[in-house]
């Protein structure tokens, strides 16, 4: 069960709209390493996860990713306020605008719409947790790349917060992998999958 809280996890307050930045940052909404994919990855994987502590980590991180999805949405909304047709055309935002106006839609910066084919729920403890570790690093790199391309301090402030969260999630998934391996060491973990074999 989920309940909405009427606040962002970290404040987003962007003074200067910039549609060029929006067309880059949208990748963290619906791109291959974006926040909605992250949330769905953890919230699906947790169901078949046999270890309670690991279920807890996947649940709490998966919910936080939804808060990040909302923060990215707020960034995009504020970057695309009060645009003129001229700004839309010159910035390259026109290819997004033609399909979505200034509505928020999960696509990659390339324009490829969000797809569940961008993540896996393998139903295998080691496969899933290793995917999660990689996912956090890939999202961290995307935020690093955004910080290379954006120089508005209002935007960078929120992006730096999100980048730091990827690092913390990576650390918690390292802990989760450790917990799982300890459990699996009780048997021969190369020989069975505790999410399926009993």
């Amino acid at each position: 069960m989920f309940q909405y809280e009427k606040r962002l996890q970290y404040p987003v307050k962007i003074k200067t709209p910039n549609p060029k930045y929006a067309s880059i940052i949208v990748s963290q909404l619906g791109g291959p390493d974006g926040e909605i994919g992250a949330s769905l990855r953890y919230l699906t994987q947790r169901i078949a996860m046999p270890y309670d502590k690991v279920v807890g980590i996947l649940t709490d991180v998966g919910v936080e990713e939804l808060a990040h999805f909302e923060m990215i949405s707020a960034i995009l909304y504020q970057l695309t306020r009060n645009l003129s047709y001229d700004e839309i055309k010159k910035s390259g935002f026109d290819t997004y605008f033609v399909d979505h106006t200034t509505g928020i839609y999960p696509v990659a910066a390339s324009g490829y719409p969000y797809s569940a084919s961008q993540f896996q729920s393998k139903g295998d403890v080691l496969a899933d947790l290793n995917e999660d570790l990689a996912a956090e690093q890939k999202a961290r790199v995307t935020y690093d790349n955004i910080l290379r391309l954006v120089d508005d301090p209002d935007v960078c402030d929120a992006i730096k917060f999100l980048r730091a969260r990827e690092v913390v999630h990576y650390q918690r998934f390292c802990d989760a992998l450790g917990i799982a391996q300890e459990k699996m060491n009780e048997k021969n973990f190369y020989g069975y999958n505790p999410a399926f074999d009993k």
Binding site: R7, L8, E64, V168
Partner: peptide
């Protein structure tokens, strides 16, 4: 209003961050 909301944000963040840590280190 914004200042008070930032205070809520900051305390809520500290609580959540420790919750996540406690998941792994109860």
């Amino acid at each position: 209003k914004e200042r008070l909301l930032r205070t809520v944000d900051a305390y809520a963040f500290m609580a959540y961050e420790t919750l996540l840590y406690l998941d792994a280190y109860p």
